Amino acid sequence: MSGNGNAAATAEENSPKMRVIRVGTRKSQLARIQTDSVVATLKASYPGLQFEIIAMSTTGDKILDTALSKIGEKSLFTKELEHALEKNEVDLVVHSLKDLPTVLPPGFTIGAICKRENPHDAVVFHPKFVGKTLETLPEKSVVGTSSLRRAAQLQRKFPHLEFRSIRGNLNTRLRKLDEQQEFSAIILATAGLQRMGWHNRVGQILHPEECMYAVGQGALGVEVRAKDQDILDLVGVLHDPETLLRCIAERAFLRHLEGGCSVPVAVHTAMKDGQLYLTGGVWSLDGSDSIQETMQATIHVPAQHEDGPEDDPQLVGITARNIPRGPQLAAQNLGISLANLLLSKGAKNILDVARQLNDAH
């Protein structure tokens, strides 16, 4: 009898209710805020589980004197976190989706994509230029951005401005803007500013005609071990179906173009009346040469937790077992079709030249 009692006690200790789920994140304040929001949602869904947040620095956090596009290494903000995932030191990792490459290392998958916040870019102005827009900034004003995508589009749109690289986390960039006289304004992701509670610093939100956004911008991705079915089931509740389908289309477009950090590629997606609209573009580094096109596809946005595919093969690095396969494939095909259209119009040449120029500098 006593033996059975011990077995029952052991089973209770090993039951999922007692389990601590370890969540990996970057150390920056924004990353911690984003991770806290994901953990809060998981806690609400699984009140019996405990969650421990483990923060670590990544290569991208450490190399702050070089433009991201020049470092010449993929997975700048993800490699150390993936290493911890691989060694079973954490069970899942919360990322900004735009930091996750469209091809993940073997053994990993994006197990959830959370509801997207505003994906557009924002302009934050130096205190002396508050009330201005990019259009009304004085001639030769210097605007800071760490992104080739932003610089290429904005140089084309605002030729009277000069664009220079600015690195560091959000706090560091804002301090550089406010305390030094080098920059009249800087460009940042609206979602990051909003998550930090800095709505009052948003001086201008850039519309798609001015600057399309990065693939996955404004959404959070939760990376897990691809074979860890328990954790895949656990994080599945975080999937937002519309965000998922938009981001599958965007990531398929980028992957098929073979774009990345070192080339200016941008997108804009919208879901309306059962249609998914995808606009994508590529630019030369100075913005003088560009190709942009829009395509659409009829896609039914499923309700969360309709029964999805059981075999769960990944699409552009994403596993969404609780979302039907048909809409996911339709979104992926839309991204591939748009990429093929741009490639047929000469996108590869623009991107190759951009890559060579970026590598040469």
Rank of each mutant, 00 (worst) to 15 (best):
P119F: 10
D99F: 01
A84D: 08
T172D: 01
T78G: 11
V39S: 08
I186T: 14
H126V: 07
P241Q: 15
A252N: 01
K128W: 11
A112F: 01
K87L: 11
L97T: 15
Q181D: 08
Q153N: 01
A226R: 07
L254Q: 12
E179Y: 10
E223V: 05
F253C: 01
L341E: 11
G236N: 01
W283Y: 13
P105K: 11
E86P: 01
D240C: 12
D359W: 13
A249S: 14
K176F: 13
L81G: 07
V265I: 11
G287A: 05
Q296W: 07
F163L: 14
C211L: 10
H207G: 11
D230E: 13
K272F: 12
T319I: 09
D36L: 09
Q29Y: 08
K227S: 09
L285D: 14
H300M: 01
P138M: 12
T190W: 14
L343N: 15
T66Q: 06
I186V: 11
I323E: 06
T66F: 09
T58C: 12
L154R: 04
L81W: 09
N118C: 13
Q180F: 03
Q229P: 07
K345L: 11
I186L: 08
H207V: 10
V93G: 08
D307I: 01
T190N: 15
L276N: 01
T41N: 09
R355A: 04
P241Y: 01
T59W: 04
Q292F: 09
L254I: 01
A84R: 06
K87M: 12
S344Y: 08
Q296M: 01
L238S: 04
V282E: 01
L154M: 09
R167E: 01
K348S: 14
L315T: 03
V93A: 11
C261R: 03
V20S: 15
W198F: 11
I110P: 01
A31F: 01
N118E: 14
K345A: 13
T58I: 05
M295C: 04
G48S: 12
Q34M: 08
I318T: 07
H199Y: 14
R201W: 09
K227Q: 09
K62N: 15
G236A: 14
G218I: 01
V38D: 01
Q181A: 07
S165F: 07
L30I: 01
G48D: 13
L148G: 14
L278S: 07
Q194A: 13
V222T: 01
A219L: 01
N171M: 11
I33M: 08
I248F: 11
C247G: 06
I21T: 09
K348N: 15
I54S: 07
N169P: 01
P119N: 06
R116P: 04
G24W: 01
R246K: 06
T58V: 08
I336K: 01
I186D: 04
G111T: 03
I291H: 10
F51P: 12
V93P: 03
I350A: 05
